[in-house]
Nucleic acid binder design. Structure first.
Lengths: 115, 115
DNA sequence: CAAGATACCTTGACAGGCGAGGTATCTTGT
DNA sequence: ACAAGATACCTCGCCTGTCAAGGTATCTTG
């Protein structure tokens, strides 16, 4: 629970799209790579993960196909679309803006005294 | 709407507490100061604002009292408690950690290759 | 006296996260 | 042969925070 999930809320889609920029991948593996990147401090809950896949597919950001594994559990691979890349770019820009904004808002300083 | 509210979600409490660290203040004015700090790019919706006040008061982070204005609309002032200051500190720490984590997760790089 | 600003509040809907539960396959140990 | 665990997918229903829409009351200005 270390990190409040509300702080991550709204980033789920961005996180997933980022994992698909370089190559197609499947859900289980995507989540593993997220855990690795955060040294186990964070993982998407399965329900969250698969909900996000549906959402992203519905909005045309990703497409999916079944892998042709001859052995082991079936895997549904996801592929990012051009729309998805555009969306990813927008989300990154939004994040940068939001980050700055939040930093400005949680400061205790009296005045911006801006300009 | 410029900034998706889901990106700010979970920061509302922190933002409000930050505005109360230096002095008591009332809702309307707090929201004004938020707009000023972001040059009009962001504001809390009233419903969100007052919901947050209830939440923070219930959890002992703030207390409230009616101002003694002789004229104009009544104002309910909010004051941060010691608990609130502690919580604020924790939230700031959480934010720093979350910020780093998100940055790490939305990068497109293949490997952390970290240490 | 209407309009707009100040200042507060509540209700109900909505969306995203997630706990809990489920399915099916393969591997390993006994 | 079979139980246990890992891999890999999925859905249902609840919870929580946000917010559109509506409301109240006061003061100022034209």
């Amino acid at each position: 629970m270390s990190i409040a999930s509300d702080l991550i809320r709204g980033h789920t889609d961005t996180i997933i799209l980022a994992r698909l920029i370089n190559s197609d991948n499947y859900g289980y593996e995507i989540n593993k790579s997220i855990q690795q990147r955060t040294n186990g401090k964070y993982e998407l809950k399965e329900a969250t993960l698969y909900t996000a896949f549906r959402r992203l597919e519905q909005s045309g950001c990703i497409t999916s196909y079944w892998g042709d594994e001859q052995t082991g559990a079936r895997r549904r691979y996801y592929s990012i679309t051009d729309t998805g890349r555009d969306t990813y770019g927008t989300l990154i820009t939004d994040w940068k803006a939001a980050k700055e904004m939040i930093d400005k808002l949680i400061e205790t300083g009296e005045e911006d005294n801006g300009r």
